[in-house]
Simulated scan of single mutants.
Amino acid sequence: MVSRPEYHDPADEDGMEPPSKSSRKRAMHALQDLGQQLVDLSVERLRKVPMPEELFDAVRDAQRFTSHEARRRQMQYIGKLMRNVDPEPIQAQLDVFNGVSAAEVARQHRLEKLRADFIEDEKVLEHIANTWPQADLQHLRTLRRNALKERDNNKPPKSFREIFRVLRDLEAAGADDDTPDDSPEQA
């Protein structure tokens, strides 16, 4: 009697099957899509994304190409380069740019609360001055006065929005030194 060789299942060794061809293709397309998001960024934002120099150069080349076929090939090349890069830090930075990250959402909520507190009580201006000494306090007072007038007259909240922009810019400028705590109770 001839014995038949036993079937050896590679999944028995490590408990996992190798990824299917379809799942590998999906992963490669996801990396290419991430590369496309990089190509769509401005140069200033692109410099803030953590990536190897070779990938940065490939993305900059893709931004220059106008021919559809050249751009398509370059996108495939970017996808190939992305296979050797950890996509998590890149995706995290893109999420920050898109306002999707939890830290970015928390920062926006903190600034919105600070703005609301400032509109309700001008004494919050002292906290703003202590937190960001470079702040133009007279400009903020004017914006607050205009925002209150707009609210009373049921006009569009132009100054209210401008206060948020000013606070956001102040925080961004202050983030280079040390990120301050924005709670007015600690003023």
Results as ranks from 00 to 15, higher is better:
D61P: 06
R60G: 04
R64F: 13
R71I: 09
A92C: 03
S101Y: 13
A103N: 09
L111M: 09
V85W: 08
Q93C: 04
R83A: 06
Y77E: 13
V100W: 01
L94W: 09
D86Y: 01
Q93R: 13
R110G: 14
E69R: 15
F65D: 09
D86E: 00
R110I: 10
Q93D: 01
M75E: 13
I78W: 01
T66P: 06
M51C: 02
K80F: 05
P52C: 10
R71N: 11
D95F: 01
V96L: 08
Q91T: 06
R110Q: 15
V100E: 12
Q74L: 10
Q76W: 05
R73P: 09
Q93T: 15
R73S: 01
Q108N: 12
E69G: 14
V85T: 14
S101L: 03
A62N: 09
V96D: 07
L111Y: 02
Y77V: 12
A106S: 09
L111T: 15
Q74N: 14
L94A: 06
H109I: 04
E88C: 05
L94V: 01
R64W: 05
R107A: 10
R64K: 15
Q76F: 05
Y77H: 06
N98Q: 12
P52W: 02
E69L: 15
P89D: 06
Q76P: 04
E69C: 13
F56R: 03
E88S: 12
V59P: 05
Q76C: 04
V96Y: 00
N98V: 06
I90L: 02
T66M: 05
E104M: 14
V105K: 15
A58N: 06
N98W: 03
G99S: 12
E54P: 07
A103G: 11
H109P: 08
R60Y: 02
N84T: 08
N98P: 08
Q108P: 02
F56P: 01
D57G: 11
L94T: 05
P52Q: 05
L81G: 05
D95M: 00
G99H: 13
D86V: 03
Q74M: 12
P87A: 06
V85Y: 01
R60N: 07
Q108G: 08
E69M: 14
R73W: 03
D86A: 07
A70C: 08
L55D: 01
F65S: 09
F56A: 13
R71Y: 08
Q76H: 08
D57E: 14
P52E: 05
E88R: 03
P87V: 13
P50Q: 00
F97M: 00
G79Q: 02
A92Q: 10
P87I: 03
L81Y: 03
I90V: 08
Q93A: 00
R71W: 11
A70R: 11
D95I: 00
L55S: 04
E54F: 08
Q93W: 02
V105W: 07
V105C: 06
V85N: 03
V85E: 07
R71F: 11
L94I: 01
V100F: 05
V59T: 02
A58F: 03
F56Y: 07
K80I: 04
E54V: 12
A103T: 12
Y77P: 10
V96C: 09
T66K: 14
G99R: 01
M51T: 05
P50N: 02
N98T: 01
L81M: 13
D86P: 08
E53F: 06
M82S: 07
D61R: 11
Q63L: 11
I78H: 11
G99E: 02
P52F: 03
A70M: 10
A92E: 05
E112K: 07
R73F: 08
D61G: 04
